[in-house]
Measured scan of single mutants.
Amino acid sequence: MTYKLILNGKTLKGETTTEAVDAATAEKVFKQYANDNGVDGEWTYDDATKTFTVTE
């Protein structure tokens, strides 16, 4: 399945996607991606759209 991440960081905004077997796996990938890019904030997940959002 394809999962999407929306980044609403103070210095980085954008979107990315990943292929993962489940939401938990996608979340690990996205949290590492956000961490690597210096984005740390509040996370939400919408199962209907398979979209994670992180907002600083």
Results as ranks from 00 to 15, higher is better:
35 N>A: 12
21 V>L: 14
48 A>W: 09
9 G>M: 11
56 E>I: 08
15 E>C: 05
45 Y>R: 01
7 L>T: 06
42 E>Y: 09
10 K>I: 12
37 N>G: 06
31 K>N: 04
18 T>G: 03
15 E>W: 15
14 G>V: 11
43 W>P: 00
2 T>C: 05
30 F>M: 03
19 E>C: 04
2 T>M: 10
37 N>H: 13
22 D>K: 03
31 K>M: 10
37 N>T: 08
25 T>N: 15
54 V>A: 03
16 T>P: 03
9 G>Q: 04
19 E>A: 08
18 T>D: 03
23 A>G: 04
41 G>F: 03
9 G>A: 09
43 W>V: 02
40 D>N: 10
26 A>L: 01
10 K>Y: 13
49 T>H: 10
56 E>Y: 09
7 L>M: 15
53 T>S: 08
27 E>L: 14
42 E>L: 15
40 D>E: 09
54 V>W: 03
21 V>Y: 14
20 A>Y: 02
14 G>P: 05
5 L>I: 04
12 L>Q: 14
26 A>T: 01
18 T>F: 12
56 E>P: 04
49 T>K: 09
42 E>Q: 14
35 N>M: 11
9 G>N: 04
9 G>C: 04
23 A>C: 05
3 Y>R: 00
11 T>L: 11
17 T>R: 12
20 A>H: 02
28 K>G: 12
17 T>C: 06
39 V>L: 13
53 T>H: 06
32 Q>A: 15
36 D>M: 15
15 E>G: 05
4 K>R: 13
25 T>R: 08
24 A>L: 13
45 Y>W: 04
13 K>L: 11
54 V>N: 02
56 E>L: 06
40 D>S: 11
8 N>D: 11
8 N>M: 11
42 E>V: 13
11 T>C: 06
19 E>R: 14
16 T>K: 13
13 K>D: 05
38 G>M: 11
5 L>Y: 02
45 Y>N: 01
53 T>P: 00
1 M>G: 10
9 G>Y: 07
32 Q>I: 13
6 I>E: 04
12 L>H: 14
24 A>Y: 09
27 E>M: 12
22 D>H: 05
48 A>L: 15
8 N>H: 09
34 A>P: 00
39 V>K: 02
27 E>D: 05
36 D>L: 12
26 A>N: 00
19 E>D: 11
15 E>T: 14
26 A>R: 00
41 G>H: 02
12 L>S: 10
50 K>I: 03
50 K>H: 13
8 N>C: 05
45 Y>D: 00
52 F>G: 00
10 K>H: 13
5 L>E: 01
46 D>F: 04
35 N>Y: 14
29 V>S: 06
33 Y>T: 03
11 T>R: 06
6 I>R: 06
31 K>W: 11
15 E>L: 04
39 V>C: 05
9 G>F: 13
21 V>H: 09
14 G>K: 15
35 N>C: 06
2 T>G: 05
43 W>I: 03
38 G>L: 13
9 G>D: 03
33 Y>P: 00
5 L>T: 01
51 T>Y: 03
38 G>K: 09
5 L>F: 06
41 G>E: 01
48 A>C: 06
12 L>K: 05
49 T>Y: 08
55 T>F: 11
27 E>P: 00
16 T>S: 14
54 V>I: 09
24 A>C: 06
1 M>F: 12
21 V>I: 07
29 V>R: 11
12 L>W: 13
42 E>P: 06
19 E>I: 13
44 T>S: 13
32 Q>Y: 06
29 V>H: 09
55 T>C: 04
40 D>F: 12
39 V>D: 02
46 D>R: 03
37 N>E: 12
19 E>H: 12
30 F>N: 00
29 V>N: 05
38 G>H: 15
52 F>W: 15
24 A>Q: 13
20 A>Q: 08
43 W>K: 00
54 V>L: 08
25 T>P: 02
22 D>F: 04
33 Y>N: 02
13 K>T: 10
9 G>P: 03
46 D>W: 04
